[in-house]
């Protein structure tokens, strides 16, 4: 009689253990399954790269049909070029203003934090732009484009936070 009761308790314990294992399995693999954000990964990967790539190849609207790359090269070297006729902006100021306008219409409009830098030495950037209200706390995804200049290489970097 006592042995039969012991067997029943053992059977009950086995059932409880099986139910517990099943519960853990359900919680681990079904309830705690985090949704994957494929689009976010794709967008942040494409955004920094495409923004910089497109910007560098863009033709300046009122600066002798020079590209932004050529203006940046001048900015890092001699600043001989002047754009926009009467207002006469030097290449650095022209690139700065143009990029500021483009970023206001793109990343700022989409509420994306950014930091744009153009430099020969990273400690002394020629152009530095970031969100006026929300500065970038840390670079999460950034893209650097090297541009050859007479004295070496200059870099253009866009960080998306």
């Amino acid at each position: 009689m006592e042995k039969k009761a012991q067997m029943e308790i053992l059977g009950l314990a086995i059932v409880v253990v099986l139910v517990l294992i099943a519960t853990i399995f359900v919680v681990r693999f079904i309830l705690l399954k985090t949704p994957v954000n494929y689009r976010q990964g794709f967008v942040s990967a494409e955004l920094a790269s495409n923004t910089l790539n497109t910007f560098l190849k863009t033709t300046a609207a009122d600066c002798s049909l020079l590209t932004m790359t050529e203006l940046l090269q001048d900015c890092a070297q001699s600043e001989e070029l002047s754009c926009r006729g009467i207002e006469s902006l030097n290449s650095c100021k022209y690139v700065n203003d143009t990029m500021k306008g483009i970023l206001a219409q793109t990343l700022e409009k989409w509420s994306i934090k950014y930091e744009f830098l153009a430099y020969v030495e990273s400690s002394r950037p020629l152009i530095r732009l970031s969100n006026p209200e929300n500065p970038c706390p840390a670079d999460k995804r950034s893209k650097i484009f090297p541009i050859p200049i007479k004295s070496g290489t200059m870099y253009v970097k866009l960080g998306i936070c």
Binding site: R39, F42, V43, E46, L47, N50, T51, T54, T58, T106
Partner: peptide
């Protein structure tokens, strides 16, 4: 979903 991609 809105996806914006800059391009030339």
């Amino acid at each position: 979903f809105v996806t914006n991609i800059p391009m030339g």
